[in-house]
Design a protein around this nucleic acid. Sequence first.
DNA 1: CGGCATCCGTGACGATACTG
DNA 2: CAGTATCGTCACGGATGCCG
Lengths: 208, 208
Amino acid sequence: MSPRRSYDQYCSAARALDVVGDRWTLLIVRELLAGPRRYTDLHADLPGVSTDVLASRLKDMERDGLTTRRRLPPPGAAYVYELTPRGSELLPVLQALGTWGQAELGERRPTDAVRAHWFALPLLRDLEGEGLVEVRLEEGEFHVYVGAEGGPVYGDGPAPAEPDARLALDTGTCTAVARGESSVPDAVRDGRITVTGDGTLAKALREG
Amino acid sequence: MSPRRSYDQYCSAARALDVVGDRWTLLIVRELLAGPRRYTDLHADLPGVSTDVLASRLKDMERDGLTTRRRLPPPGAAYVYELTPRGSELLPVLQALGTWGQAELGERRPTDAVRAHWFALPLLRDLEGEGLVEVRLEEGEFHVYVGAEGGPVYGDGPAPAEPDARLALDTGTCTAVARGESSVPDAVRDGRITVTGDGTLAKALREG
DNA sequence: CGGCATCCGTGACGATACTG
DNA sequence: CAGTATCGTCACGGATGCCG
């Protein structure tokens, strides 16, 4: 195991970069915020990362206390990687990067990959309260845990339980929210986001 | 000029990392948050960065709209690098990294470099209101602009104008604040931080 | 002397192939 | 499926040189 390369500066930001500053690390955290993932799934949702770099990062992250490796019970016994509480605390870092990066997003380039759950972070920024929200896009479906403390912050596919609200929106609205040109409440008011469900979260969204 | 390497993901966090994810870039931003700096000063306050990497980063950052290069008027005509407003907007990213990195800070290692103004970020996190604050440490002196919008967020040396408050604290208190073990208001209450001055900021600090 | 550009050794990275 | 092995390339770190 290679000793970690450090900036050797007594500064907490530099220390954070010692741990998460390597290429791909924070994007792996972004993926794992969706809950436990298998190696192959991570590799599929991180186009461009090579197999050895992904394996190396996962080892480093485990050594640094960001992730754990766990064997799923049979059937389908496989290893999954998941964030520790310490790893989940990186959410504000990804939020800050995401907020700043809105202005860099622009139009989608032909070479750009997209995954539905990548829209979870900008959506989460705009949602208040607490509860499970299911989101339906043309590109796919995902769900977010608004106001969650530990555990997954969002996930791919339909909500694993009855959601407190369901949102449906088209690609244009979604990218407008992702770019910060439109907020979720605004888009709900304009009818570009359809809200269903009768939880308090759904009601709050509909009533602005 | 080399074309920028990109993750090619339609995700604002990934886009942000396209711009600021390279080694040293965010630490250069941290330095420039202290105001305009010359190349040599940057090199001196970023121990470990090689000259070519620093020059390359500064070019990339100018191309990406994070910094500008300006010639100082004579005497002492030299080039200084300073953040654009867009570059200054990275402050929340550094704050988030710094907050997360508190837990990684630990004791100062013999190999760790220290600069007085690196303590500005944790201090700034704890200070509310608006005004100019001068901070005196054993390692040196710096000042912070609390609640500043544009321009420098902190700077080395004594305050360039009459400060609204002056703080004096020892190294132990300073590192305790940097590690998040103690807040500034707490340390003021305990007498570990001495507050002088009669601005509203100084009064608010003394009265807790 | 400040502000880089050049050169070079090392390590990180990316793509592909291969294995338990 | 979950990685390891191999290899070419590029980024990085350190030193030195050049030029105003």
